[in-house]
Amino acid sequence: MKTTELIVNGERRATDVDPNTPLLWVLRDTFGLTGTKFGCGIAQCGACTVNLEGDAVRSCVTPLSRAAGKRVTTVEGLSKQNTHVVQQAWLAEQVPQCGYCQSGQLMSAAVLLAKIPKPTDADIDDAMSGNICRCGTYHRIRRAIHRAAELATRK
C-alpha cells in the first residue's frame, strides 16, 4: 500500500490509506483530529475547512494526495493554548451558538488575516461567504475578525 506523508499541525505524519481518500477522513479517522467537521461532503458549507499551505481548502473534497508532502493546519493546530487571535476574539465576541460550523469559520478567518491583516467588511464577506452558519452568527463573526485584526496589531 502506498504511504502518504504530510505535516499536520507541525508534526510529520504518514498513512497508508488510499490517496484518493478525502483529507477530512484522514484527519478525523486516521489521525484522530475531530475538531474538523463533516458538514455537506460536497464543499458547499465550509465546516470542513483546514489550512493547506496557506489556503482555506475544503477537506471533504480534497484528496489526501493533494496534501502529500504539504503542511496542513487544523483547528487543533491554530495554537497550543487557544491563544491565536481569532480564538481570543471568538471568545470575546461570544461568536458560537451551536458551534458546529465554527472550526471551519475559525480556519477561514485565520487564513484571511494571514493574507489581509486589516480586512474591510468587504474583504471579510469575500473570504467568509463560503462558510455557512445555520445559527446566523455572521455579524458576530465579522466583529470578531475585526477584533482579531486589532489584537494582532498589539502583539
Binding site: 461532503g41 473534497v61 489581509i116
Partner: peptide
C-alpha cells in the same frame, strides 16, 4: 479568486463525482 477564497479551495485537479460537488 480573492486572497482568502481561491477557486482551488474547492475545485480540485479532477472532478468531484457527486451531484452539486465542484
Amino acid at each position: 479568486g480573492t486572497p482568502a477564497m481561491r477557486c482551488t479551495n474547492c475545485h480540485q485537479s479532477t472532478n468531484t463525482e457527486f451531484a452539486h460537488a465542484p
